[in-house]
């Protein structure tokens, strides 16, 4: 846990007027920084299972000796942003790998859009997520998370990912609140552009 997160309360109550929950999904491979990003902008400490990856389990008292189990669990985590008196945005960090395909339908139902977080050291981890989003027509942007100065420029990444030209691709630092905020704004701007384009098309 870094210091910024421990300052966040796990649960602060929402405004009594809160009435509309919105969803944005941050999707990416393991270790790409999903949780970090959710944590950076969330007003609550993200509730997550990724911190409890290995559990020394139930010690069972049976005749002689104890039984201990080790369980590794992976799930999504989420954070929360109160946008105004009514709207509350929930950010879900979801593993992007193909083996978690069954998460998608329920998690992505009703979502505004998605942020694909990529790490150029493990770019292929994002392929399945991008394929899936393209396939379902879910609006998304791609954000490259840079914990270190990147080697490749964004156009090389765009080329490697074979992104369609209208999909925004930006750099970000998932640890940084403003940077994470900018990623969300980029996504909503993209949605706005898509929406107005559709509204203008009869």
């Amino acid at each position: 846990m870094d210091s910024t997160t421990s300052e966040l309360p796990t649960r602060t109550p929402l405004r009594a007027t809160a009435s509309n929950g919105l969803k944005i999904v941050v999707v990416g491979g393991f270790g790409v920084g999903k949780t970090t990003m959710v944590r950076a902008v969330s007003e609550i400490r993200p509730l997550s299972t990724e911190e409890v990856m290995t559990q020394a389990g139930a010690t069972v008292d049976v005749n002689n000796g104890a039984y201990a189990k080790t369980t590794t669990t992976v799930a999504f985590d989420f954070g929360r942003i109160s946008l105004d008196e009514q709207m509350v945005l929930y950010l879900f960090g979801a593993p992007g790998q193909e083996r978690f395909w069954f998460l998608w339908d329920s998690l992505f139902a009703g979502t505004l859009g998605a942020v694909v977080l990529v790490d150029t050291r493990r770019l292929a981890d994002s392929w399945y997520a991008i394929d899936r989003l393209e396939h379902h027509g879910t609006p998304f942007i791609v954000a490259r998370n840079n914990f270190e100065p990147p080697v490749h420029d964004l156009s090389a990444v765009r080329g490697a990912l074979d992104l369609s030209p209208d999909v925004p691709l930006i750099d970000c630092d998932a640890r940084n609140r403003d940077s994470a905020k900018q990623v969300l704004i980029t996504l909503v701007n993209h949605l706005y552009a898509l929406s107005t384009a559709r509204e203008n098309t009869p």
Binding site: F30, G31, T36, M53, T54, T72, T73, V74, L107, A174
Partner: peptide
């Protein structure tokens, strides 16, 4: 939306340590 990935130590190693 969740997963029980039992006994997948490699996942543990990569994710919990390197995320961020």
């Amino acid at each position: 939306a969740a997963v029980a990935a039992l006994e997948a130590p490699t996942l543990t190693a990569t994710d919990s340590r390197t995320d961020g």
